[in-house]
Nucleic acid binder design. Sequence first.
DNA 1: AGGAAGATTCACAAATTTGTGAATTCGGCG
DNA 2: CGCCGAATTCACAAATTTGTGAATCTTCCT
Lengths: 161, 161
Amino acid sequence: MARDEQALSTAVEQSAAVLTAAGFPKMPARVLMALLVADEGGLTAAELGESLGVSAAAISGAVRYLRTLGIIHRMPHPGSRRERWEIFDDAWYTALAGKNSVYGTFAETAAQAIDALGDPDSAGTRRTSEMVAFFRFIEGKMPELLSEWESLRAAGATVVE
Amino acid sequence: MARDEQALSTAVEQSAAVLTAAGFPKMPARVLMALLVADEGGLTAAELGESLGVSAAAISGAVRYLRTLGIIHRMPHPGSRRERWEIFDDAWYTALAGKNSVYGTFAETAAQAIDALGDPDSAGTRRTSEMVAFFRFIEGKMPELLSEWESLRAAGATVVE
DNA sequence: AGGAAGATTCACAAATTTGTGAATTCGGCG
DNA sequence: CGCCGAATTCACAAATTTGTGAATCTTCCT
């Protein structure tokens, strides 16, 4: 089957839209998806701008954002001035691990409310304690889940590559 | 220890801020946290407005949003016109299950890009396939994780209540 | 060194989101 | 059966976010 630019662009935009709906900023989401489907060697800022139909400045902003998240990296291309951007292979893995720690900070922040409530028998205390316990549980389970994925990934790698 | 309104309000606002940073809309986050720490019987729209220092209209909007997410419900208080709002006890559980399905839709949307790419050996195809597999894995594991939580929750319930 | 191509930053403009006040609707009570 | 209190909706205002164009900086090539 041949490369269908039209359908590819649609898929990229739709996936970006899903990320956006989940709270991810719009332009970074589009750039991320564009880099995901890119060929080996990544894309230059100019190529990203052209393919998404936005200015170089917007690309730069999105790229800066994605870099702070640590899910893309600059690939200095020898012999050319053009910088190429590439997704880390473990980007999604990393993103989820990071998101996980968001759950953790949320739990710990909310735990302060328990102290402030005082009364250990109030409905608010019970509800809040339960929530904190829930997120601590999820956070605690995450490493296990991710290492399980790594095993599967390693096992299946030979098949794919 | 007595109820410390000052500290409680701070904890509520900070927790709401964490949710906001994670992509959750601001006002719904604040309302949600306020309801979390509320006493038995929930809060009225007026009480929420006063406690958060915002207009009744803002509360109404936030409440509508939270209702579409299915994490709060109206408690018709007999004998009084005042509607009380209350968090579902399994709100966070539900929210995560819902978020999970976001992962699922994201994976399925991105899977369309694989078809559009055509070439099964390209770097883009490999990267995208891997990502889709990852999110499908996470989605698949979620029910297991949640049922494990339920067991723990049920086991510990007698201790707390 | 000088020049040039590309990337980045800055101040500002556009657009989307968010919250308010006034009017409306809804439900119970005298 | 009409009033009264409360909640919701609407159109608009405020504010935050997002993207652009012009200028600046960086790095390579001659």
